[in-house]
Design a protein around this nucleic acid. Structure first.
Lengths: 347, 347
DNA sequence: TCAAACAATTAAACAAATCTAAAAGGTTTA
DNA sequence: TAAACCTTTTAGATTTGTTTAATTGTTTGA
């Protein structure tokens, strides 16, 4: 067992000895310092490749206190909403030779704190997080106080002033609700999600205010909360269709819930988009290819990811500070899952 | 800019000085060494918490050469197939206090090698990878030769003998094809995917052999390759429906392609599962809630992830070696997207 | 011509932990 | 009472790269 490492590890001193130089020169040369003569640098680099030298970042970061590691924690990387944000972050960070460490917290504050601690142990340069429900301010401060700047995405944390990027949820749900109202719907349910997050409260407020402004009474019976998954939307269909208030339209928490709901409606023999109008939220890739194509609200995932990554890189470079909340304005995407109220509708 | 770190960093020596002990004792105590007296250990641990000490893994790993980092690279973490594998890996690794670093390679061999190099620089303990198309044996050896064991999932690499876990693709597609044949279909297309990977070749072989065995001619015109996404399945529908051979059923590369294809078929005014039978592959969560519910082949994602993680942990602990290929046997999941051949079908 | 400036290189300190071998202190045994 | 033997603690070396200040040799300028 374990006679790997046949050849002993190649380190700076191996190269230095092979060339009759000091480790200082080799170190400087490999980092393209102008202090080293061109000829010397070339010889060193050649030798490094020849010997298969591998730079030891842990040793280096011990001295420099920059590890090149950036942490990202979200609720669930499998969720396409976060996946789209992550892709934007990845694209942005890739340019700056930072490695990023990814983790799910599944809304467990403990798992999230565990991640922050691990990241601190590894000397993480910064962290981008979509905070778990109930995240205490102290957990963000733990990172900040130990020299690891934090950026928040998708959700805010009370009493915390770090740069925060998310969509304007109240505005976005109001867009969707107004769209349905303009089509003649008045019995509009809101499906999925929770009211325990800033996002949840904002989305409900957007929906409720839009109804009120149009002179439609807000009936709490029409609010059906639940997980933010297709499965949950699918299951909500039964409740939705059995509702005594006979809603004719649904504002869904997100596209996943909406697609699940449409599947459930179809399974019950009704035609989503004709018998029942459905709006999603996020405008995921698959919204456009759902059947019927889903009317939804674009939530600026790519913007959120890109801005967050940039804000972090800026902070690391000591330049501008973008503390506080930055709201991205959502936009309506109208497709085939919504249609004018059918006079005989409501079952 | 940057007057964070108000208090200077707390390290072992800070604790040691505060208690009038040596760093050696503190180091041993925090790792629960039996060499340290119980009273002393308790005092030290208390002080560590009081001061907010954060363990510096980079410094430690410099001496111990175990970083606690495990790397995982797959084609695309957004793809639910990999996401399910990743979840299984995460669950398994979580128990062993390893941090895992995730990356996409999008089938770019360069991006993949880049990741391996970064991981080596960080002192990664091991790597689990679903190798990019065209991965040379030398890239796997780069990891292994530098003391970082590799485990392969989902795909094999020629000339490489490291532990490899994947589904039995030939067997699985044969299952799906036979299912369709048993329903009376003879004009069966195969949609999506590529023939440039071991997986691709195996799947095509499974499909083709099943047809041959049943005395059905294999028509290369019925093979429509393409990306492995919903989008691509959706777009393939047009081609599929226009095919002069009027296929009545489709064996799809995976569930995503199948769901996309069904959406495309529905968009064209036909009823998937009645007019055209469709099978998927993987049995993702959403296969069951698609409309119609998708007949598919379970590909053992969770098993692959769990086995791979265990094999790596075993290797790190120097115990058993599971080199070579391990095939997981897929199973048929019959739902509503397939039905007996309608005599008047084929458009 | 000599001091100052400059270019290239290096010795040695340093980062924060671990680990080995030895010391210190106390108790038991011969 | 000295030797042997624990138990607990520690000095100091070690890990690999970075950085500072010093060194050596060369060139420039007055």
């Amino acid at each position: 067992m374990g006679n790997r490492n046949l050849a002993q590890k190649i380190k700076l001193s191996t190269i230095a000895e092979a060339l009759g130089l000091s480790t200082a020169t080799v170190s400087l040369a490999l980092r393209d310092s102008p202090l080293v003569a061109d000829v010397t640098r070339d010889r060193i680099k050649e030798k490094a490749i020849e010997l298969g030298y591998i730079y030891n970042r842990r040793a280096a970061s011990l001295r420099t206190s920059r590890s090149g590691i950036i942490g990202v924690v979200v609720h669930d990387i499998m969720n396409p909403f976060y996946a789209e944000i992550l892709k934007a972050i990845e694209t942005e960070l890739d340019r700056s030779r930072q490695t990023f460490i990814l983790s799910n917290h599944y809304d467990s504050v403990d798992k999230q704190r565990n991640f922050i601690e691990t990241l601190l142990q590894l000397g993480g340069d910064g962290v981008i997080m979509s905070p778990a429900i109930g995240t205490p301010a102290s957990d963000i401060r733990l990172a900040e106080d130990n020299g690891m700047p934090a950026i928040l995405i998708a959700r805010s944390v009370p009493e915390i002033d770090v740069p925060t990027f998310r969509g304007d949820d109240a505005y976005g749900t109001a867009l969707a609700t107004n769209h349905l109202i303009s089509l003649g719907h008045t019995r509009i349910a809101m499906i999925g999600g929770t009211d325990h997050t800033s996002t949840g409260r904002d989305r409900y407020a957007g929906y409720a205010n839009a109804l009120k402004k149009a002179g439609i009474e807000v009936d709490p019976q029409l609010r059906i909360p639940g997980p933010r998954t297709k499965q949950s939307g699918f299951e909500a269909a039964v409740n939705f269709l059995a509702n005594p208030l006979k809603p004719t339209a649904a504002v869904c928490w997100n596209d996943l819930v909406a697609i699940g709901l449409m599947n459930g409606i179809a399974r019950a023999g009704l035609v989503p988009g004709k018998d029942i109008s459905v709006t999603g939220y996020d405008d995921l890739e698959e919204a456009a290819i759902a059947t019927p194509a889903l009317t939804t609200v674009w939530n600026g995932q790519s913007e959120v990811g890109r801005f967050a990554a940039r804000a972090l890189l800026d902070k690391l470079n000591g330049s501008s500070e973008a503390d506080g909340l930055h709201l991205i304005k959502p936009e309506m995407r109208i497709r085939q899952s919504t249609s004018p109220l059918n006079p005989g509708a409501g079952r």
